[in-house]
Design a protein around this nucleic acid. Sequence first.
DNA 1: GCCAACGTTGGC
DNA 2: GCCAACGTTGGC
Length: 215
Amino acid sequence: MLKPCPSSPRRLAAGTAQSSKITALVGWESRSAAGPESMGPPVCSRWLMKSEPESRLKNGVDVKFGIEDLKALPDQTGCWDGVRSYQARNFIRQMKAGQLAFFYHSNCKEPGIAGIMEVVKEAYGDPTQFDRKDVNYDASSRADEPKWSAVDVRFRRMTRRFLPLSELKRHHLQHRRDGGPLKDVALFTRARLSVQPLTSEEFDFILSLEDKEPQ
DNA sequence: GCCAACGTTGGC
DNA sequence: GCCAACGTTGGC
């Protein structure tokens, strides 16, 4: 689904239309951006981003991009482009440099969290929307008001073990019954969302699993 | 390959 | 603005 462009570091230097002006926030997005003292969903300063580690053709182009592919880029840094959902885009636009995100492998043999990356460049116009040859080209997007945004992310590290979706789901179900940090985690409450917010409680709990034996 | 979830589109 | 049809995501 997502196809961070392998050639990205070059792209950055060139076009970096800051599109953050357009961040008209509504609904969940604004609530999560509210101050720590306010009501509603807690502040989300962590993220989970999905990408497909196995080859799949979309319009004849392979969309494979796993964590190893990010690691292999110059500076282990890539542009997270190709996001074409408004909800996901709005989250992209909320990201701040320095924030951490899980790299999630989706649509594959074993879905789950493979590693951690860091946002190194905040939202700018996704170059692929203007590229006729790109799978995610969007003819309706105008250069003076880009519809879609991308961020740059840098590989930080692999998780000490792969954290399978099935295991996360067990915790989610248990926390839903008995209470716990993964009770409302977006991965299970918001199907198909490719860029998701995590509270630091959610993030830390998930991360704590890497040092525990898979049950 | 199946299909549930869910976002988008378009007729009215 | 409603909502049925349709397309996509993504786990299984």
